[in-house]
Simulated assay, not measured.
Amino acid sequence: VVAGYRLDFVDTPPFLWVLALVALLAALALLLAGIALSRLWNFGDRGGRDLSVGALLAVLVLAPFGVAAYWATIYPPLRDISTDVDDPPALDTSDRTSDMNALSPPTPGEQSLQAEAYPLVSGRSYNLPFETVVDAVETVLDRRDWQLTAPYPDINGQSEATITAVARGLVLGLPA
């Protein structure tokens, strides 16, 4: 399912349901391995090698979920990061995330959490021609393989532009 999701054959909600099902089955396998170990220890039942292989596979499958749970505890509970915390741009939901609810503006607590956790994320101002800055942004987007969710804006005679792109995570390819 990870390959199908990375190749855009599977949408995000079914992908997350499959991940949850995999975690549930691996946890069940580990629980049953514990029960089997108890029977092996108390009654001398057979199947110690199969028990060990099953428990090892369950632990290997659950390891990424454990790492994700660890990350969820050490990173702040933010639902969005913006370079403008006072007036963040609205998220474009015209791509695969169209079933998501629109985000409300960040609360003062979320603004302070972002400022504390990500002090280098802020708006930038450049003393360059506007077209040069937009060209540099386009180059960065191309190099990082971010997908545009809207076409590049027409920059003739403008001094501001909003470029909307989606970055995908390295392993699972979830939108970041």
Rank of each mutant, 00 (worst) to 15 (best):
P64H: 07
A23Q: 14
G47Q: 09
G48N: 11
S38M: 09
A29W: 06
D145P: 00
S112K: 15
S112N: 08
S122H: 12
G54M: 12
W71S: 01
W17F: 11
L31M: 13
L19M: 13
A161W: 02
R46F: 12
S112T: 13
N101V: 11
T12Q: 12
A55N: 00
G173P: 02
M100H: 12
A72F: 01
W146R: 06
G34L: 13
S122Y: 03
T97V: 10
F130L: 03
L16M: 14
N42K: 13
L128C: 02
L57V: 15
T149G: 13
S112E: 12
T12G: 06
F43K: 14
E138Q: 11
W71R: 06
F15S: 03
P106G: 05
A23R: 10
V53R: 15
F9Y: 13
G109A: 15
N156L: 05
D87V: 07
R79P: 00
M100C: 08
R124T: 02
N42I: 13
Y126C: 02
L21W: 07
D84P: 03
A68V: 09
Q158V: 03
A90L: 13
S82N: 07
A136P: 00
V10K: 09
L16N: 11
V10D: 00
D8H: 15
G66K: 01
R6K: 15
V59I: 14
R49H: 13
L16K: 14
L40W: 13
V85M: 07
L128M: 13
L37F: 09
V166R: 12
W41S: 11
N127S: 10
V67R: 00
A69R: 04
A117S: 10
R124V: 08
P88A: 12
Y126E: 04
P88H: 12
L56C: 12
Q111R: 14
D142A: 15
V22H: 08
N156I: 02
P151V: 07
E131N: 15
W71D: 10
V140Q: 05
L148K: 10
L57K: 01
A23L: 03
L62P: 00
E131C: 05
G4P: 08
D142C: 08
L120D: 15
L120N: 11
P108M: 04
A115T: 11
P14W: 04
Y70I: 06
S104L: 15
D80P: 00
L30Q: 05
A69K: 01
A115Y: 04
D84Y: 04
L148C: 02
A165T: 09
I81H: 01
D84W: 06
A68W: 04
A63R: 06
I74L: 03
V134C: 00
A27F: 03
V134W: 02
P88G: 06
E131H: 10
L31W: 14
I35W: 12
D11Q: 14
T107F: 05
